[in-house]
Amino acid sequence: MDNYKGVLVFGEIGDGKLTPITIELLGVGRKLADDLGEELSILLVGSKAGALAQEAIACGADNVYIAEDSLLDAYNSDAYTQTAANLCKKVLPSIMLFGHTDLGCDLSPRLNGRLGGGLSMECMTLSIDSATKALIATRPVFGGNAHATMMSKSARPQMATVRAKVFAPAERADGRQGKVIPVEDKLDASALKVKVVEKIKEQVEGVKLEDAEVVVSGGRGMGSAQEFTKLRELANVLGGAVGATRVACDEGWAAATLQVGQSGKVVSPKLYIAIGLSGAMAHIAGCLGSKYIVAINKDKEANIFNVAHFGIVGDWKEILPPLTAKFKELLSK
């Protein structure tokens, strides 16, 4: 266990750049590494990984492991697991961090299964226990009703996935020095069993839900697919995105990719406007990180009012049109 040293971030690349979550991971990773007095490393994979090594160093990495293989250009769970596992067995990181993204959610448990580490997913805080030097992670459990503190006494690496926007991005320092280390192991193609056959992109109107500064969400109270489209108008005025509860998605009023909640997306915009939804814990778990939550519901007992900063008790049909109009007026000034 004492052989395991340092923090390793699994970096993600999008549009030829390190993704925002990767920079956030480098930020928190740097802090953890400093607390341990150890090094921060990052693994970048794919044929374009090398070009980003300096960027990663500027963002705080001491070591950048580059696995340049075209088989790694697109995410493949078997290929990525193999690459990451081989590296971990070699460099023996004490802590390994992933984004709580499509990739991180699929890769980290599989990798954990292979390495026999200790994984906590969806972490909200990460720190180092001063006595044992072990990683302390907190994560939501019971649909957000409780927070659990997790530790791995002996299993290594200690792994965690982290939601976007929970930690501040790393501060860039262009003059920083670090090592770029190519990963030599070639992939064993025969071990790649899972194949991605096709990717289907769901067209999202306007801003992406996870990136939006404002989210306008609707639930069962919207009543129909047609009524649901009225949320889009307000979202457009505010330059935001539309979200939905599980029920609204199940009813087919909104695409499944718009689901906010424990089993959907977790969003943390500045403003989250919840309309016609009662606020089941599983939904609230998906929007609790919002700076301001606003509730519009005709039932004053609805749970959403327990987490909202502002609210109107009333029928959304009478409130949404004047609200949209007023915003239009105010924002045009």
């Binding site: 200790g118 503190t149 997790m150 530790m151 299993a155 987490v307 109107i312 008790v313 409130i319």
Partner: peptide, 24 residues
């Protein structure tokens, strides 16, 4: 491999401000 060392119920002290008006 992992151990739960603490469990707490998050307290969110939010007083929801109900906005009113003569009409909706």
């Amino acid at each position: 491999h992992t151990e739960i060392t603490g469990l707490s119920v998050p307290t969110r002290k939010i007083e929801c401000e109900i906005i009113t008006g003569a009409t909706p």
